[in-house]
Structures are given as C-alpha cells and as structure tokens.
C-alpha cells in the first residue's frame, strides 16, 4: 500500500479530534461535578475551558476545508473528512451544553433534590461513555461500537424522563416553593440527554463513514 501525504494529514486531523473529544469529556464530567457539589469555582473554570474547545473547533474546520481544497478527496477519504467536520460540530455543541450545565450549577441553591442529583450523575456517566465510544468507533472504524452508542440512547432518555418525573411530581407539584431549586436540575438533565443525542449523531456519522449509508433519521437501516 502506497503511503500518501494525505494519510499524514488525516492522522493530524484525527489527533485534533481526539484532543477535542478529551476536552469535551472533561467538560461533561466537571460540569456535573460542579452541579453535584454546587462548586461555583469548578463551574467557572469549566466555562473558561470552553474557549479552548471553540478554538480547536475552528482549527479542525479549517483543516478539513484545506483538505477538501488541496487533496480533493474521494471515496473513504471523502467520507472520513466529511464525518470529521460533523463530529467537530457535534463535539463543540456538547461542550456548549456542558457550559449550560455549569450555569445551572451556579444558579443552584444549597438544598437540592438528592435523588435527582444521583440520577443526574448516572446520566452524566452515560453521556461520557457514549461520547468516548462514539469517538473510539470513529478512530477504529468500528461499526458495532457505533451501533452500541445509538442503542444506549434509549437508556439516557429513560433516565432523563425519570429525573423530570421525580422533580415535577415528587417536588414541584407538592411544594411550589422548591421550583427555583428544581428548575436548574431539570434543565441540566435535559442538557445531558442532549449531549447523548449528539453522541448518537456522531455514531450515525461513523456508520455513514464506514458503510456509505445515511442512517440518520433512518434507524431502520441499522
């Protein structure tokens, strides 16, 4: 197999995406920790770290555009770079959602619904695992792993629903005064579930990259 200049460029692109994914995983972890521990300082640090992710997003996007212009990639190279552009945007969006969670953490009063917080922590673990697996599926071109990510989304949805149900029926419906301290948790649960949706979108892009079949909005093709 002939070694190409493009292969080196694709390796650099993969490394940048891996860096970005690691930063996003940290952001998800730290935002949930800030929420759980009501740690405003950690929330602020995490919000500041988002700038680095934004910068990396621009670098990756420019690199992808350069590769299109300079190498006119086709076949698997084309699908790889097109997928990288999508993943880049999804990762950046995940980081923004982590910033949202940090902002909820800063709004959260001292006493909060304990069970919901435990479930949010579980949801955060699921989100981190989904992100990691989706990126691993991209790097290893592993379709099975990508499918696993998509299947896990149901679990994330169920957990988000449980959290919302608990907060609305067990807390807000019974005592209107708890609304200010439950709303941030409710929104955080929604943000985490959206992060899982973005991980699913990455997994769908990875399947496109491997199979050249668009499964987005067509789960029956999985």
């Amino acid at each position: 197999m002939q070694k190409r200049h493009l292969d080196e460029e694709l390796r650099i692109l993969t490394t940048d995406l891996l860096k970005m994914a690691a930063l996003v995983e940290d952001a998800i972890h730290n935002s949930t920790e800030a929420l759980k521990k009501k740690d405003k300082e950690l929330a602020e640090v995490t919000i500041c770290a988002d700038k680095k992710i934004d910068e990396l997003e621009n670098i990756v996007e420019e690199r992808c555009i350069d590769l299109f212009a300079l190498f006119q990639p086709v076949a698997i190279d084309l699908r790889f770079i097109a997928t990288a552009i999508h993943i880049n945007a999804e990762l950046e969006r995940m980081a923004d959602l982590a910033v949202n969670i940090c902002q909820r953490a800063m709004e959260l009063p001292e006493q909060s619904a304990v069970k919901a917080l435990a479930d949010i922590s579980k949801l955060s673990d699921i989100a981190k695992t989904m992100v990691k697996k989706a990126i691993d599926a991209f790097v290893d071109r592993n379709e099975e792993l990508a499918q696993e990510v998509i299947l896990t989304d149901k679990e994330a949805n169920r957990l988000r629903n449980d959290i919302i149900r608990e907060l609305v029926y067990d807390h807000m419906a019974k005592d209107g005064s708890v609304v200010p301290r439950t709303i941030p948790l409710l929104l955080a649960a929604r943000d985490l579930e959206r992060i899982c949706d973005h991980a699913c979108a990455i997994a769908e892009d990875v399947i496109y990259m491997i199979r050249a079949k668009v499964v987005k909005h067509h789960r029956e093709l999985l």
Partner: peptide
C-alpha cells in the same frame, strides 16, 4: 467517487 464497490477501485481513486 464516494463509495466504490471494489477495493481495487477505491485504492486507485484515492491514490493508494
């Protein structure tokens, strides 16, 4: 040019 069926075609069009 996006998804050739044959590995040899893919290697050729991608310059491998």
């Amino acid at each position: 040019f996006t998804n050739p069926s044959n590995k040899i075609t893919e290697d050729y069009v991608t310059g491998r």
